[in-house]
Design a protein around this nucleic acid. Structure first.
Length: 212
DNA sequence: CACCAGGCAAGTA
DNA sequence: TACTTGCATGGT
């Protein structure tokens, strides 16, 4: 399976090119985006992030201080804005109180309990935690999301009933533990699924043509 | 008009 | 453990 997954990766990379994910200029932007994109299209999230940046709020201490009602107003376009205001506050509070408002300090936290730490924050589930770990903190974890599920189902690579941990283990047990590989692979899966945007479980014509 | 989008937590049986 | 429901905007 390792060789097959690596072959598919090569084809995807050749087809779509490097994706340069996550779309965001800073680690904080990635963290904020990861929360705001929960069950929400990225287009709606972009507007919210632009609003936060243009008003100077894309900063741990500013986000820590800002009134809930004001924050909610800025992220309105991303939907569930009251819920997401609370969720953003929850993770910002931890970064502020326990890591001196420093993402670097969070990244260098050393222990391997960072995932548990994130999962302990209300509003941060497995996908959000792993997106933060991989794309903001550069830790080698594989992100499973709606696109990844469609990719696995569409290729008949994985036919068991859905469970996040099992699908993640499928990738991480098969592939070398490498941040760049995990980053690029997930981003390429998204590119593939978006190129077949009308299908829920797109079969990769690129791979099919090459007998993958 | 209905349906979907890069989830999560709380409630129920 | 395995469903079900609320959360909400913007695009198709």
């Amino acid at each position: 399976m390792r060789q097959r997954l690596l072959k598919i990766f090569d084809i995807l990379l050749e087809t779509f090119g490097e994706r340069h994910w996550w779309p965001g200029e800073t680690a904080l932007e990635v963290i904020v985006g990861a929360v705001l994109t929960q069950n929400t299209s990225w287009k709606n999230v972009e507007k919210a992030i632009a609003s936060l940046k243009s008003s100077g709020l894309m900063d741990v201490d500013r986000l820590y201080e800002v009134e809930d009602a004001i924050l909610a107003q800025h992220i309105r376009s991303s939907g569930y804005y009251n819920l997401k205001t609370a969720r953003l506050k929850n993770i910002i509070n931890v970064i502020h109180d326990e890591y001196g408002s420093s993402i670097e300090q969070l990244r260098n936290n050393g222990t391997n309990k960072l995932r548990e730490k994130l999962l302990g924050i209300k509003g941060i589930g497995e996908e959000t935690a792993d997106s933060i770990l991989l794309y903001a903190l550069e830790k080698p974890v594989f992100v499973i999301d709606a696109y990844t599920k469609r990719f696995l189902a569409g290729h008949g690579l994985y036919d068991c009933p859905y469970r996040y941990a099992d699908m993640q283990a499928f990738f991480m047990d098969s592939l070398p533990s490498d941040t760049y590989l995990f980053n690029e692979y997930h981003a390429l899966i998204v590119a593939l699924c978006q190129s077949h945007c009308l299908k829920k479980a797109p079969r990769c014509t690129v791979c099919a043509l090459k007998n993958q």
